[in-house]
């Protein structure tokens, strides 16, 4: 899942300062699950922005909408009914959603209300952690199901480095050393011998190295 986190309120407020009527759009997918941009967050942000305006002696009108998925043009199309009545759009979806709205409605300013952070998993209620960087060439089969690219601070292919101590990364006692985890997992799986095999240098072209990526399924077109 894509995770995101709401931007500081003053940043959002300063973006929309010139406008009196805004359309605030949430997304019922990833950002709902990570509690950053679902229906509830839209309502909270809407109230907060209105209160900021009140403090400034202004009146802000907010149209709240939450789409099933902001990254699909068909869903985004449903905003067309409201777009003429507003001065700007604020999106609480990930960057994909913001761009989809901007693409469809070229005539209005679209502002992001969240920072899209990473692809991650929820460790427990209220905690999300990075798990994947979309490198385009998955090697989890070699590393016992723990990704050194997303979870090692240095993205080492053959770790750990000298900064690993007591199972933690030197950047923070809160961060597990990915290679320590990989070693423990390999031990548990009884494949310690694989650890000695050197993983060859990674080809970064399937990642961002080859420019913006695209997936095409001919059969579905």
């Amino acid at each position: 899942m894509i995770t995101a986190e709401r931007k500081p309120l003053d940043e959002i407020a300063s973006c929309i300062e010139p406008y009196n009527r805004i359309l605030l759009v949430g997304c019922n997918e990833c950002v709902t699950v990570c509690a950053a941009g679902g229906r509830k967050e839209v309502a909270m942000l809407s109230s907060a922005l209105q209160m900021v305006s009140m403090k400034q002696g202004k009146t802000l009108s907010v149209v709240e909408m939450t789409l099933e998925r902001q990254c699909d043009p068909e869903y985004v199309e449903s905003l067309a009914l409201h777009i003429d009545g507003v001065d700007a759009v604020v999106s609480m979806a990930c960057g994909c959603g913001v761009q989809e709205i901007a693409r469809r409605f070229g005539q209005v300013r679209v502002f992001p209300a969240v920072n899209t952070k990473f692809m991650g998993a929820s460790e427990r209620a209220g905690v999300w952690a990075e798990r994947c960087q979309g490198c385009g060439d998955c090697l989890l089969g070699l590393t016992g199901g723990i990704c050194p690219i997303a979870r090692c601070s240095k993205r080492l292919m053959n770790g750990p480095c000298g900064g690993s101590g007591d199972g933690k990364c030197e950047i923070s006692g809160e961060v597990d050393c990915a290679w320590h985890l990989i070693w423990e997992r390999m031990k548990a799986l009884g494949i310690e011998d694989r650890y000695e095999e050197v993983i060859s240098a990674k080809d970064w072209r399937p990642a961002r190295g080859g420019g913006p990526r695209k997936i095409i399924r001919e059969d579905l077109q």
Binding site: N28, E29, T32, V33, A35, G38, R39, S122, R124, A125
Partner: peptide, 12 residues
Amino acid sequence: ERCATCLVCVRA
């Protein structure tokens, strides 16, 4: 129709 199967309720 609204449920995003996010599990928040399951956990809460």
